[in-house]
């Protein structure tokens, strides 16, 4: 388990990491990136599986079932639409390595 203070450090470092990742993104990738980060918080699926896994009675199982259902929608949907958007980005030249952002 993660103790209180260690968790605080994780929150802080993860916060700065997220900020750093985004700060250099060209505008043309904002929508795919929003969609991509939407996919990443689909990790809630893991928590939803645990919540349903620890359920002990019918009520808890019903709520846990809804949690897994919603979380799976978040993860799968987020991935599918992000991938669909990103596969369309192509450079006009044949070479893939050059180009980058404008």
């Amino acid at each position: 388990m993660i103790e209180g203070l260690a968790a605080l450090y994780i929150f802080m470092l993860a916060g700065f990491t997220g900020y750093e990742i985004i700060s250099k993104v060209p505008v043309i990738l904002h929508t795919p990136l929003m969609s991509g980060s939407n996919f990443v918080h689909g990790i809630v699926l893991v928590g939803a599986m645990i919540a349903l896994g620890i359920a002990e009675n019918g009520t808890q199982q019903a709520i846990g079932f809804v949690a897994v259902l919603l979380a799976a929608g978040n993860a799968v949907g987020g991935y599918v639409v992000t991938e669909r958007m990103l596969e369309m980005f192509k450079a006009s030249g044949k070479k893939d390595s050059a180009g980058g952002k404008h």
Partner: peptide, 24 residues
């Protein structure tokens, strides 16, 4: 909720998205 469940992957992924999303 990652903290509630003691799940580091959820804490990290969630917080990264939280701050990246705020900046966006």
């Amino acid at each position: 909720e990652g903290y509630v469940l003691g799940n580091a992957a959820m804490i990290i992924a969630g917080t990264v998205v939280g701050s990246a999303g705020s900046l966006l």
